[in-house]
């Protein structure tokens, strides 16, 4: 529903301004349904991790004594879920879009490879971000505020609402450099063949490493809090 309505708005815009942002109408529609397929696997509207509940209930202590790293354990779980959701929730909207509006399907296997790599890294970036948000529960009384903030930032700055190449001027440049762009806009551009492959993947890897690194620090802090202060 969300994707279909968004597609109509984008079509109306590109009909008024053909070629806007380097996309034609078909590209814009394709962008719409490709990114729609990201919502489930990347949990762009927030949530997806059971960690906040476990921190609040204190069960996280059990996870922390396990011999595996809490972060990697959670990532493995999330990656499995993402793969499942990509097939179950991701592909149907893409096929729907293809059926109703007709979307661009790349013929070049290299572009597919670039897209799938970008998509996989994007899932890790989205995990890195949601993991940080989940950890914040350890310090905050009420996590609803952070959840709302995360959803707003993610949907707006990732390109889920409007493609980031529509954002004007310096604001557009800034937004394109942020981690949320690496979740949605960059892999979508790889799919459309509108971005230099190696450079784009490098930016994505950079954000994945940064967020996972922060997550590792956060995990240590949580361990410290749970073990030393008893939760």
């Amino acid at each position: 529903m969300f994707g279909v309505l968004r597609a109509y708005v984008l079509i109306a815009l590109w009909q008024a301004r053909p070629g806007l942002g380097g996309y034609d109408v078909a590209d814009a529609v394709t962008f719409c349904f490709v990114t729609q397929a990201f919502i489930g696997p990347m949990q762009l509207f927030g949530g997806g991790l059971s960690l906040p509940e476990r921190i609040r209930s204190g069960d996280v202590a059990l996870d922390l004594v396990r011999p595996a790293s809490l972060q990697l354990w959670t990532l493995a779980e999330d990656a499995g879920r993402a793969a499942y959701l990509f097939v179950v929730r991701g592909l149907p909207p893409m096929l729907l879009g293809a059926a109703v509006f007709g979307i661009v399907v790349p013929a070049d296997p290299g572009r597919w490879a670039a897209f799938l790599a970008g998509f996989a890294i994007a899932v890790v970036i989205s995990f890195g971000w949601r993991y940080l948000i989940a950890l914040s529960v350890g310090w905050l009384l009420d996590d609803r505020g952070v959840a709302v903030l995360s959803m707003v930032l993610t949907t707006f700055f990732s390109g889920m609402l409007v493609p980031l190449n529509l954002f004007p001027g310096w604001f557009g440049d800034l937004v394109n450099a942020l981690p949320w762009a690496a979740m949605v806009q960059l892999p979508a551009d790889l799919y459309l063949g509108k971005a230099p492959v190696l450079e784009t993947l490098a930016v994505q890897v950079f954000w994945a490493v940064v967020l996972l690194g922060l997550g590792a620090l956060g995990t240590r802090a949580v361990r410290h809090k749970v073990v030393i202060q008893g939760g």
């Binding site: 008024a16 942002g21 505020g145 609402l161 954002f167």
Partner: peptide, 24 residues
């Protein structure tokens, strides 16, 4: 946060009209 979320919501409309003078 509610207000910020709402502001970004309307920002989408403004961004669209930064690129065009009329929509449909």
């Amino acid at each position: 946060l509610g207000f910020v979320a709402a502001a970004l919501d309307v920002a989408v409309v403004l961004i669209i009209f930064a690129n065009t003078t009329a929509l449909a």
